[in-house]
Design a protein around this nucleic acid. Structure first.
Length: 321
DNA sequence: CTTACTATCCAATGAGATGA
DNA sequence: TCATCTCATTGGATAGTAAG
């Protein structure tokens, strides 16, 4: 039982028992360099072990070229639309080649024109752009896209984006055994014992909001969940749903593996360890919540037991092989 | 072969347009 | 005014792919 002092709106301080926190966040498009990110971690008091891997040139090249794509830009004259597509042509350890393809949809004459117009190459770390058609033929839009590429690539090499940041947040949150309160995520309950980590996350997201690339800022909010019957029921119900869903996902995945194994495909020990690990993780989570809620999580536990049995069956398969 | 990462799909959501 | 739709955005899940 966790007792906290909370000030009521009447200014009085009350002793209140807290179950945990309800938290929600949104991470908007972000541009942040690794150095800046290290600074954010430092100031928020987050362990540097959660830092992402350095950005690879290859990925930066892929992201930068991907932004050259266009969808249904209406052309002068009417009835004709321009699409720009980026397609990968070659990928080897020292070179990536992509081509920018012009697709013109002509709805009046019911025709499709399709033509590679640029070759975009990454040789080692350096970007090279070669035109495949006469420059005269190029439209203003196409010119712009190509001109923007070099800067885009430099920027993407230096900066992590919103997706990266979201992943960092989620990885850290995962360690707090969160329960999604809404079916598709977005709002999480986190037990009080992880309140410190949640505080750290909130500090981190606040710092990160300074690096949002849009007018919308990243944000994370949380509010205390007071220990009442009603709140316990809310957490319990969400937990049951989540563990059932997670167990089912595990069972289905393992069923697929067992099927493959029966077809003669090898199932490696590490794959099985991976599943057993996930079963253990869920089990630990149920244990944590059972202790906290002082209830038996019966339905979910039963499902998890099924998952565990299936994992054991996988183990048997491995033993035979 | 495993791991990391991107692209892509799907569902939920909310704003705005449209029409009865 | 209200119901219905379309579109864009967001988060989650997953398949495919290249590096190590």
């Amino acid at each position: 039982m966790v007792i906290e002092k909370l000030m009521g709106i009447d200014g009085q301080v009350y002793d209140i028992s807290l179950l945990g926190r309800l938290l929600w966040f949104t991470i908007t498009e972000t541009r942040i360099t690794r150095e800046e990110l290290e600074g954010v971690f430092e100031r928020a008091g987050i362990d540097q072990k959660w830092l992402p891997f350095p950005i690879s040139h290859r990925d930066a090249f892929r992201r930068a070229t991907k932004t050259m794509e266009l969808n249904r830009e209406e052309l002068a004259g009417g009835g004709r639309y321009l699409n720009l597509l980026v397609r990968e042509v070659k990928c080897s350890p020292d070179q990536v080649v992509r081509q920018l393809v012009r697709e013109i949809v002509d709805s009046k004459n019911v025709r499709l024109e399709y033509k590679p117009i640029f070759s975009l190459e990454l040789n080692g770390e350096s970007l090279e752009v070669k035109e495949l058609v006469d420059l005269i033929e190029l439209s203003r839009l196409e010119h712009e896209m190509v001109q923007r590429l070099a800067r885009r690539y430099e920027a993407d090499k230096m900066n992590y984006n919103g997706r990266h940041v979201r992943e960092i947040v989620q990885r850290i949150l995962h360690g707090c055994n969160p329960v999604s309160v809404r079916p598709s995520g977005g709002v999480y309950f986190v037990p009080q014992k992880h309140a410190e980590t949640v505080d750290g996350l909130q500090r981190m997201v606040k710092e990160l909001s300074g690096y949002s690339a849009t007018s919308w800022k990243s944000s994370m909010h949380s509010m205390p969940v007071v220990d009442t019957e009603e709140q316990r029921a809310m957490v319990h119900e969400s937990l049951e749903d989540q563990v059932k869903a997670a167990s089912k996902a595990l069972i289905d995945e393992m069923a697929g593996l067992i099927h493959q194994a029966e077809q003669g495909k090898k199932v490696t020990g590490t794959t099985i360890d991976n599943y057993l690990g996930r079963v253990q993780e869920l089990k630990a989570m149920i244990a944590e919540y059972q202790e906290m809620l002082e209830v038996e999580v019966i339905g979910a536990a039963a499902n998890l037991e099924l998952a565990r049995k299936q994992a054991m069956k996988l183990l048997d398969l491995e033993a035979v092989a």
